[in-house]
C-alpha cells in the first residue's frame, strides 16, 4: 500500500532532469551537427585533455584509434575500437562533458562533437552530418563483441571444487616480485612524480601499444594523379593543426613539410626534433614512400618517442593519397 509520501513530479520537472539516451534512440532530442563544427568545438573544449586527435594527453582518456587492438597485450579501448553504441557517446558528452562544465552544451553542439568523434575514428567522412533523423543508422564496429556475464557457466564448476589442504605441491618458487617494478606510492610528492615516470612501463590501464608496428605496404602510384592529390588534400586536414606546406609554410607544432617525400628525415632547420627522430636523421633515414607510409600509418609504433602525437592514418589508400599530396604541394 502506498504511504502517500512525496508529491507528483510534473512533466516539466521530468523534462528538465530526464537527459538519458538509449541505444534505440529513446531520449534523443531533436537536433543535428556536422563534423567541421564538431572539430571547432572539440578543439576549443575537449582537446586540452583528449588531445588534438583524440589520442589523450597525460592519463586522460584516449578517444580514437586502437581498432583491432582488443586482443593485444595492451588493448587501446576507444570509441572506435571498443564502445558498442553511439548513443553512449551522445549521452556521456551531454551529461558529463566538458569536464568541469557539465551540461553546458546545446543539443546541436553535442551532435557536432559526436559526429567529430566518429570522424576521428575514421567511421565517417568530413562532410558527415549527424542528426536525430540518422542517429539510429549509425553503428559502432565493436557492437557485437560483448556477451552477458557467463561466470556461472564458465567458471563455477572449476571454482567450486574442494581444494587441496596437505602436500599440495612438492615445492614452491617466487615467480614475480612487486619490488622489481616498485610502483608503490611514496609519501612525498617528489618521489611520487619520479615513480610516475617509471610506472608508465607497468601501468595497468590501456595505453598506446609500444610494439614495433609492421610497415604498411604502400601501393605504387603514378607521379601526378589529380584525383589522388585531391583526396590527399582532404586527408591532410588531419595534419593541418600542426603542419604547414607550400611557399608560405612555417614551422608550427610540427615542421614544415616541403620536400618531405624522398627527402632526408629530420632535416628542417630551426625545428627541434625528438631524440629518436634526430638519431634517425643522423643515421641517414630517407622518407621514401614506404618509410613515410609506415610512419604515417602508426607514428608511435614506427618511431617510439616521436613528438608527433597523431595516432596515424588507418587506411592504406589514404596514406597513398596523403603522400601524393605532400609531393604535389611541396615548394
Amino acid at each position: 500500500e502506498p504511504l502517500g509520501l512525496g508529491r507528483a513530479a510534473t512533466p516539466e520537472e521530468i523534462a528538465l532532469w530526464d537527459i538519458d539516451v538509449r541505444p534505440d534512440g529513446l531520449g534523443l532530442p531533436a537536433g543535428s551537427g556536422d563534423v567541421m563544427t564538431g572539430d571547432k568545438i572539440y578543439t576549443e573544449k575537449c582537446s586540452a585533455c583528449h588531445g588534438v586527435f583524440g589520442e589523450g594527453t597525460g592519463r586522460w582518456p584516449v578517444l580514437a584509434g586502437g581498432q583491432g587492438s582488443l586482443s593485444d597485450a595492451r588493448p587501446v579501448k576507444t570509441i572506435g575500437s571498443y564502445w558498442p553504441y553511439l548513443s553512449t557517446v551522445y549521452d556521456y558528452v551531454n551529461r558529463a562533458m566538458p569536464f568541469g562544465n557539465a551540461q553546458s552544451l546545446t543539443h546541436d553542439e553535442v551532435y557536432a562533437i559526436t559526429a567529430y568523434l566518429l570522424y576521428l575514428n575514421d567511421e565517417v567522412d568530413e562532410d558527415f552530418v549527424l542528426s536525430s533523423d540518422n542517429f539510429a543508422e549509425a553503428r559502432l564496429p565493436n557492437e557485437e563483441a560483448f556477451k552477458p556475464d557467463d561466470r556461472a557457466e564458465v567458471e563455477f564448476a572449476a571454482f567450486k571444487e574442494e581444494p587441496c589442504m596437505t602436500e599440495c605441491k612438492p615445492s614452491v618458487e617466487i615467480t614475480m616480485r612487486a619490488a622489481v617494478l616498485d610502483v608503490t606510492p611514496e609519501e612525498t610528492a617528489a618521489k611520487a612524480a619520479a615513480k610516475a615516470e617509471e610506472a608508465q612501463a607497468a601501468e595497468p590501464t590501456p595505453e598506446a601499444p609500444t610494439a614495433e608496428a609492421p610497415a604498411v605496404e604502400v601501393a605504387e602510384v603514378p607521379a601526378a594523379d589529380p584525383a589522388l592529390i585531391k583526396a590527399g588534400e582532404k586527408v591532410f586536414r588531419k595534419c593541418k593543426s600542426c603542419h604547414q606546406i607550400g611557399a608560405k609554410a612555417k614551422n608550427r607544432v610540427g615542421p614544415v613539410l616541403n620536400g618531405i617525400v624522398d627527402g632526408p628525415a629530420g632535416a628542417v632547420e630551426d625545428f627541434r626534433y625528438s631524440k629518436p627522430m634526430a638519431a634517425a636523421a643522423e643515421a641517414g633515414l630517407v622518407w621514401t614512400e614506404s618509410e613515410l607510409g609506415a610512419f604515417l600509418g602508426n607514428p608511435k609504433g614506427y618511431m617510439k618517442g616521436t613528438k608527433m602525437s597523431f595516432p596515424g592514418v588507418r587506411k592504406e589508400e589514404d596514406i597513398a593519397a596523403l603522400i601524393a599530396y605532400l609531393r604535389d604541394a611541396s615548394e
Partner: peptide, 8 residues
Amino acid sequence: WHHREETS
C-alpha cells in the same frame, strides 16, 4: 541504457 559506466 548501456551508458558509459556499463560499456566503456
